[in-house]
């Protein structure tokens, strides 16, 4: 039963397939009611995107090429953000094996953001109200955060919960690929794969065993749930 062996949600990001198009960023923002904050605030580095595509230049013209890394909360097994929160707003979900942020507990100390090596957390410096009728598209399944609250990628926990509830209502297990976060659903090249890591036959489990796989900052021992697959080079055949 699912109750005895809680699932561990995981993600694989194939950097060889990622084109850096940012569709995941927009999809995440539209799904999760992420506030847009305008040019000036962004210039201050207060952007609210829960995920971003990091672009690094390598080489010199004309042999120059960018490498891309979509970066989001790695949903660490040993998360540096969790022990520093004085009010237990940042804590581990034993059920889903993700790091949850409880908005109503958060008092805005920002300790968690300081301690996150992946810089995956963003802070609501202000209330960013949407002029009517733009607020019509807000997702009713996701809390609209107010000022002074820390937020971050949730692996689209609202979709996980809905998917699990639907499966339980029908008395069955969640099928592989049934639950997808907004980024993986949008990704035009299917570079982002999401699924249950405890099921060895799931698509995501198979991909984590790839020789190209690596963790971000593995040496920190954070035990991330996101595996990246190295791009370029030669393989296959």
């Amino acid at each position: 039963m699912a109750e005895e062996y809680p699932q561990k949600w995981g993600m694989v990001i194939d950097l060889d397939v990622c084109t850096g198009c940012n569709a995941c960023v927009t999809a995440c923002s539209m799904e999760n009611n992420v506030s847009f904050i305008g040019e000036d605030e962004n210039a201050y580095g207060r952007g609210m995107q829960w995920m971003r595509v990091q672009r690094y230049w390598e080489g010199e013209y004309p042999d120059v090429a960018p490498t891309r890394q979509p970066m989001l909360c790695q949903q660490c097994g040993h998360a540096p953000c969790e022990p520093v929160c004085p009010v237990f707003a940042s804590l581990h979900s034993e059920e889903e094996h993700i790091n949850v942020q409880v908005y109503n507990r958060c008092i805005g100390t920002r300790y968690c953001a300081n301690n996150c090596p992946y810089i995956a957390r963003v802070f609501n410096w202000f209330d960013y109200d949407l002029p009517s009728p733009l607020n019509f598209y807000l997702n009713p399944d996701v809390t609209v955060r107010r000022r002074s609250v820390m937020e971050k990628c949730t692996f689209c926990v609202q979709r996980i919960k809905h998917g699990e509830a639907a499966a339980r209502a029908e008395g069955r297990e969640v099928a592989d690929g049934e639950i997808v976060p907004a980024c993986a659903q949008a990704c035009p090249t299917e570079a982002i794969i999401f699924g249950d890591l405890t099921d060895p036959e799931s698509r995501v489990s198979k991909l984590t065993r790839s020789q190209r796989g690596f963790y971000q900052y593995e040496e920190l021992g954070t035990a991330p749930a996101v595996v990246y697959l190295k791009g370029g080079g030669e393989y296959g055949g």
Binding site: E3, P6, L91, S93, E94, E95, E96, I98, V100, V102, Y103, N104, D141, V142, T143, T154, V157, Q158, K161
Partner: peptide, 14 residues
């Protein structure tokens, strides 16, 4: 027996 799930923050707060 299911309190791991039913007592989880993410059960209600997201």
């Amino acid at each position: 027996q299911e309190f791991l799930r039913l007592g989880d923050c993410a059960t209600c707060h997201y």
